[in-house]
Write a protein that binds this DNA or RNA. Structure first.
Lengths: 147, 147
DNA sequence: ATGAGTGCAAAGGCTTTGCATTAGG
DNA sequence: CCTAATGCAAAGCCTTTGCACTCAT
């Protein structure tokens, strides 16, 4: 998951979107890359004390439009961001209903195969053009379950 | 899906939560029941012109705590609400990336069986206590795909 | 009757925007 | 160089809260 820094790929996408890969944007990408899970805005802000929030918000939008990051709506209304699947690979999420933390998980290939066929069937039946899917689990994470 | 009005069940749950089933709450339940899909706050507000927003927000919280409705984070940051699975049955969602609309869909029983076993395996591997799961599809709804 | 629920308006908090300054290519 | 990006502060917008009044039980 946390393989080599995705800077070249991000730079490539930004250039394609006629955007510059500035130091602030690089910082965001590094932060998300190191986290290996979707981070909430406030976590990003906290971890980037010297970056003004306006810059953070603006750059997350730019990175999202360039396809470098993906935005997930958070439980508390605040959004979460992580590097896009094209950069870190397809995966799913575990969402803890207690602490709100979202973790990544990978499904075994045979499960993924099955999911794809299910997705195709559902999409066909509803005239829906599916571009991605996610098997999201809700419940209690290991830490919260312990008490 | 849109079976007989869930008023008795909702009333039951509210009583259990030491809450009253007032006309405003009844209106919300009827609206959600008629929609058959998660509604965004603004849709609920628009459709309930004479209810003050404060009452709507407060009652959605009460209904959620009573287990009568479920809240889903919306793409645009605004939350979505629908009657809880205990009232309308287990189902999944299609999310249109263009118009933002969220639709319900049911998976065939054999798919549901398979999902359950996958969920169990994933949960066990991650020490996660799963209480619910959802196979969410993202893409374009039939209307938006047409143009 | 009597405490919960409602309505209105005001407060709050997160997000976005304007504009002058700085930096990327 | 020359335009895009930044930083700060101000503006916006959705959501929450306070308080007196009304309604459900």
């Amino acid at each position: 998951m946390t393989n080599k820094a995705p800077h070249t790929e991000v730079a490539h996408r930004l250039v394609g979107a006629q955007q510059r890969y500035t130091s602030g944007r690089r910082r965001l990408v590094e932060l998300l890359h190191g986290a290996g899970r979707p981070l909430e805005i406030f976590e990003i802000v906290d971890a980037s004390a010297d970056l003004p929030v306006s810059t953070i918000y603006r750059n997350l939008v730019v990175l999202e439009q360039a396809g470098a990051v993906t935005r997930y709506p958070g439980a508390g209304g605040s959004a979460r961001y992580e590097l896009s699947e094209e950069l870190v690979g397809h995966h799913h999420h575990l969402v803890c209903g207690n602490c709100g933390r979202m973790e990544d998980y990978d499904a075994p290939p045979e499960v993924e195969d099955h999911l794809r066929s299910v997705v195709d069937a559902v999409a066909a039946r509803h005239g829906f053009q599916a571009t991605s899917h996610r098997l999201e689990l809700r419940g209690l994470c290991a830490r919260c379950a312990r008490g």
